[in-house]
Design a protein around this nucleic acid. Structure first.
Lengths: 186, 186
DNA sequence: CGTTAGTTTGAGAGGACTCAAAGTCTGTGG
DNA sequence: CCACAGACTTTGAGTCCTCTCAAACTAACG
């Protein structure tokens, strides 16, 4: 999926945005297992996933905890660095070979400070992210391991097929063994 | 807390925004236990909490599940209606007597479609909401009942003091009894 | 001061965890 | 093209956390 395809109609053929997309974005491909961004750094890039599967994760008690998966068409960034100016707690890792387009968020801010369309598009993107997060919170808040897994199958079957069991388990907040048992009984 | 005080400096004394705040907002006070907004409706208002404590909740298996608390200075809205155009799943209820300022989100959209400052302020607000939600997800994802409670004490002692135990328990995704036991052993 | 809402305590059941070990898959090098 | 190492998944056993149901207790409010 190309970045330009992700834009709503009213933003296509907008010269400001055209210039931005062509001028300020870089493309990079990461091999499976490669780290795209590391914890404890100030990484102000914003990434668009063109191809592949990427996850964010951190370590707790020596274990990796996957916080989110990003597939084709998703936007990815360290929100703790962008919005709070803290070094990020998260690592980004390519679960499969993945191609991303990225630019510094400062460029986005710059564009939004002069382009009303861009600022409003950015608002729209943020709104969508909030919607997704709301669903995720509700899934985590009051559901059993099995319910959470079934919900993920329903909402994002892609991830189930492409990510290893251990990553999915930690994403759901359950142990690997429990997830394996749930799979066998379905 | 007044709405105007919540604005960053660069937005104060902005005539567009001044006009908006004075013209389009209404103020209303709700008694303890009163519903501000009901589920299954298309409520496109956006609320600013001036005083009090409000919660959002829904019913699952006959039980009330509190999804979020809103205190003085918080902004409150049905994101499923605003961003996805679905009837909302949530009820808003005043936990204490509460005063809110509110306006239709269409007015915000209108303002943002002409005012660059407003659009960027809105982006800033959405960014902050995302930050909060990220923390909440991480709290829910992989922590025990006790850890979640201690974290809430740390991050929002206000709520612990002002909301009844049952609401807090469901907010944390644990049973009332478990929370009561955690409290007694601390 | 009684009624209702809210909280605590107890007992028992069950889900999910941990630790451990056995399978299974996958990719690399001989 | 096979064999083996390492990564990943499954299965088992035992434990503990948290749940549910029930009942007693306490606080709040008219």
């Amino acid at each position: 999926m190309e970045l330009i395809d992700a834009l709503p109609h009213n933003l296509k053929n907008n010269p400001e945005i055209e210039k931005f997309l062509n001028g300020d974005f870089q493309t990079k491909t990461f091999k499976k297992g490669e780290l795209i961004s590391k914890q404890d750094q100030y990484n102000r890039n914003i990434y668009f996933v063109e191809q592949g599967l990427i996850r964010s994760f951190y370590y707790e008690n020596g274990k990796e905890i996957t916080t989110k998966f990003y597939i084709e068409g998703n936007i990815m960034a360290n929100s703790d660095t962008l919005f709070q100016n803290n070094p990020t707690r998260y690592n980004f890792e390519a679960v499969e070979e993945s191609t991303v387009k990225f630019c510094n968020y400062a460029k986005v801010e710059e564009l939004c400070s002069v382009s009303l369309e861009s600022a409003n598009f950015s608002r729209f993107v943020l709104g969508n992210i909030i919607t997704q997060m709301t669903d995720r919170i509700s899934s985590l808040q009051f559901h059993t391991a099995k319910e959470k897994y079934l919900r993920l199958i329903h909402e994002n079957p892609n991830i189930i097929l492409r990510a290893p069991l251990g990553m999915i388990a930690s994403y759901l907040g359950i142990s690997q063994e429990t997830l394996s048992r749930i799979r066998s009984e379905i």
